[in-house]
Design a protein around this nucleic acid. Structure first.
Lengths: 246, 246
DNA sequence: AAGTTTGTTTGATCTGAATCAAAGACCAGA
DNA sequence: TCTGGTCTTTGATTCAGATCAAACAAACTT
């Protein structure tokens, strides 16, 4: 167990990006990561190809939002994963990805070439350990979301989504607890509906309802203010400390 | 990469159980697993406690079915994971499990004491690798199920569940493809409804409808025969090779 | 500044699944 | 063989969310 220490190779944008990949790597290991690292930015709507002849990579999200989508032949779609800043994209040691990965907003990735990354994994056991941890977190998030999709009402679904995003933002910006949370919603109504298993009309109606009831405040279509997180969480039907991606 | 070879320590019940935990372990490693192994059987309905002072363990399912359940305060429940034979229960290296784990039918587990199992993981890198693989499979299953919960109709949901179980049974009993598949449904209508995000009445109605349409045949309440898997899979709205737990 | 595109809101109506209710079926045990 | 319990089916009704439809708002053309 190597204690956390600030490193010269910490990501210049945010200080935590490489640490998001492995918080236990020492400077030497991080500098190896550094060597195989590059950045890419994708405009909103663009598909992110994680494989391809000499452009295979895994990545962590630096800014923006990407989403994993599954589609049925008749066009019904379900977003099965929202990747927010610090989330990890790609599966080292696995061949094809079975989902569409697409930028939902403009998204910047901190990428690592797959081959050398996988080689690094072999010689760095705690990197695999860390990947297992990340995957278990994703599994928890997916299962929590199964409860949302299977058993929650439209209003609860919206509140669940908003509280996840609000909490992430609050953490990122270190908003003190029980202060109002302010953020830009990184999803269109349509994307929200695909994540929640609803139609966009229902999403719009429930957003209006939450606004009317003072649970959220809207400035324009996208900017949201949550005056009281407790109330929003209660609307989501979660117990106090719940929350998929927290 | 160690080639598969039959080992004296392969599970006496089914030849594959330890292999289900790690197919790459050599005889020496398997015999270490052997030393920390024991079996437990739980009657239907009983909670399976994976932690507890000196009874911490991880396990793989040998026979029967266990389920992971999430519950809201008001009692709404969602089964977030069905553990069929050869599935792995418990999370090495992680503290609490956040779901209820319960036997759905009588279930026999092949258990490994947690502490020594985790120690073995440290000295056996491909065990972690294997656990990562297992976890990624579970993640795929969970995400496939998100599509089922979010976007499929009641009839498609039922067909999806039946085709998963039928495929598992077909594999286990090596039923040749495009032969009829025969199996005992290991779930009550109530458990089915909790897995599918429906009510048990809807489950019952749709089962009757599928029967009337000749997609499935029922003998008694629980024994099911699928004369044509292709048709069942088509009803599930999946493309040919889909299927969560395959 | 008018016209187009893209995203959003709101209204009217319809429908699939939930809910409420009751009756069968299949047991284990006396 | 009856009897109470658990599980399942079926029927009648209701309702949350889908669908169909139209208008609105902001951002880009040119």
């Amino acid at each position: 167990m190597v204690a956390y220490k600030k490193s010269s190779v910490a990501c210049s944008e945010c200080q935590i990006r490489n640490r998001a990949v492995c918080s236990q790597c020492d400077d030497d290991e991080l500098s190896k990561l550094e060597k195989i690292k590059f950045y890419r930015t994708y405009p909103a709507g663009q598909t992110i190809a994680l494989t391809g002849q000499d452009m295979d990579f895994v990545a962590s999200v630096v800014t923006g939002v990407a989403s994993l989508t599954q589609t049925m032949e008749d066009g019904r779609t379900q977003i099965v994963g929202l990747m927010l800043p610090s989330d990890f994209l790609g599966r080292p040691g696995r061949q094809g990805v079975m989902y569409d990965v697409a930028a939902t907003t403009e998204v910047t990735l901190c990428c690592f070439h797959r081959k050398p990354f996988e080689e690094l994994m072999v010689t760095t056991p705690h990197l695999i350990q860390r990947l297992l941890e990340i995957t278990l977190d994703e599994l928890d998030a997916a299962r929590e979301w199964m409860l949302v999709l299977g058993r929650k009402t439209a209003r609860e679904k919206i509140a669940s989504l908003l509280s996840i995003i609000a909490r992430r933002y609050a953490k990122l910006h270190k908003t003190p607890p029980n202060k109002a949370v302010d953020f830009d919603l990184p999803l269109t109504r349509d994307a929200m509906s695909d994540y929640l298993g609803l139609t966009l009309e229902t999403v719009s109606r429930q957003m209006s309802a939450l606004k009317k009831d003072g649970i959220i405040e809207l400035e324009g279509k996208r900017h949201i203010r949550v005056p009281d997180m407790e109330r929003l969480i209660a609307e989501a039907g979660d117990d106090a400390d719940g929350g998929v991606l927290s």
